[in-house]
Amino acid sequence: MIVAEKKPVEEIIDYVKDFKKLLIAGCNECVTVCEAGGKKEVGILASALRMYFLNEGKKVEIDEVTLERQCDHEYLEEIRDRIDKYDAVLSLACGVGVQFMAEKYFSTPVFPGVNTCFLGAAEERGVWSERCQACGQCILGETAGICPISRCAKRLLNGPCGGSTKGKCEINKDLDCAWQLIIDRLKELNRLDDYEKIMPIKDWSTERAGGPRKVVREDVRL
């Protein structure tokens, strides 16, 4: 999923302090699961902002809504009939949702309520960690199912570097060395010989380096 973190309330206040009618829009997908921008977080932020404005002596109307998704037209359309009532939208969706909202409602200011962090997994309750950088050319088949692009601090394709110590990364003792994990798993799969295959220089053009990306699937287009 896309993992996000709540922005500090102070930062959000700074964005919206001059508006009179606000819509706080949550998203029922990833940000709900990682507890940063779902219905519950919308409620908390709305309550906090209502109190803030009241305390400041400002009359501000704050409405709450949580959409099924903010990255799809059909769900974003659900607020079209009332969007003009608001001076601004505070979107608690990931960066994708915030932008899609801004594109769709071109004349309404839209502000982010979360920091979008990475594509990750819920390691345990309350702990999420990165697993993918969406490089557009998956190499997990060659690296025993562990991604060195997202999990090695130097994204080395032929690791580990000389800083790998007791299974941990040189930059942080709490961080697993991705190449240690790869080697452990290659061993488990009886494929340790594969370690000596040199991974060729990567084509990064399918990654951010190649400019904004797009997937077009003719077979599923209308």
Partner: peptide, 20 residues
């Protein structure tokens, strides 16, 4: 080459890789 980094078992294979 760092003969002392972990995991030790791939330190020689890693040298072989650099030679290759």
């Amino acid at each position: 080459a760092n003969p002392f980094a972990d995991p030790f078992e791939i330190r020689v294979p890693r040298l072989a890789k650099k030679i290759a």
